[in-house]
């Protein structure tokens, strides 16, 4: 793998004053020549995913698939256990008593769904990632757009990537960014 020397350019950052101005600028960046960008906010801003043009999260499908797996497992396991493996007479009920299984079916669906949601979320967000700490104030009170250089061609990592930081900076300024500068990837493990 190509090992970079020195600080790696993360992109050009532009700070915005409010969520509204960020949203407005994000919509313009989305439709601009800069296809690679990301937004950084201290809290979830409603409408940002739409402004960024992000596709809908795939996490619900993971949750659903695993929840129904949990349902199936609970039915099969309880049926096998109480009907054949460990048949016990409880309260004169038949061995195969669906009403008694339902609480476990419910719980196991939720357990599978919940755990799958956690790991699915981590997977689709590419967590844990350590290298994207551009400015500490982004977790506190500032909003920013980072225009990133296009990723290098995986077949030809040495090829020159077309990216002008000056152009990106002036573009962000034209959108109303209060402060723009180049940022480099840094992090706890970098």
């Amino acid at each position: 793998m190509h090992k970079p020397t020195g600080p790696v350019l993360g992109g050009v950052i532009g700070f915005f004053e409010s969520p509204d101005s960020l949203l407005e600028a994000t919509r313009k960046v989305r439709d601009s020549q800069f296809k690679h960008f990301d937004c950084y906010t201290p809290f979830a801003v409603h409408g940002l995913d739409e402004a960024q043009g992000l596709a809908r999260s795939k996490v619900p499908y993971v949750t659903g698939a695993f929840a129904f797996t949990g349902t199936t497992c609970a039915v099969l396991w309880q049926y096998a256990a109480s009907k054949t493996w460990w048949a016990h007479l409880v309260g004169g009920k038949p061995f195969n008593s669906l009403p008694a299984f339902v609480p476990i079916i419910f719980e196991l669906s939720i357990l599978f769904g919940g755990i799958a949601t956690f790991f699915g979320m981590a997977f689709f967000n590419r967590l844990p990632k350590s290298k994207r700490i551009y400015d500490r104030s982004l977790t506190n009170d500032r909003f920013a757009i980072v225009i990133e250089p296009p990723p290098s061609d995986p077949h030809d990592p040495e090829a020159k990537v077309e990216f002008s930081t000056e152009q990106a900076e002036s573009y962000l300024k034209s959108l109303g960014a209060k402060d723009t500068r180049k940022v480099f990837e840094e992090g706890w493990f970098a």
Partner: peptide
């Protein structure tokens, strides 16, 4: 609905 049913079914 199920809670009502199951407890009645169980206690008999």
């Amino acid at each position: 609905g199920f809670s009502q049913y199951m407890l009645i079914w169980y206690a008999n």
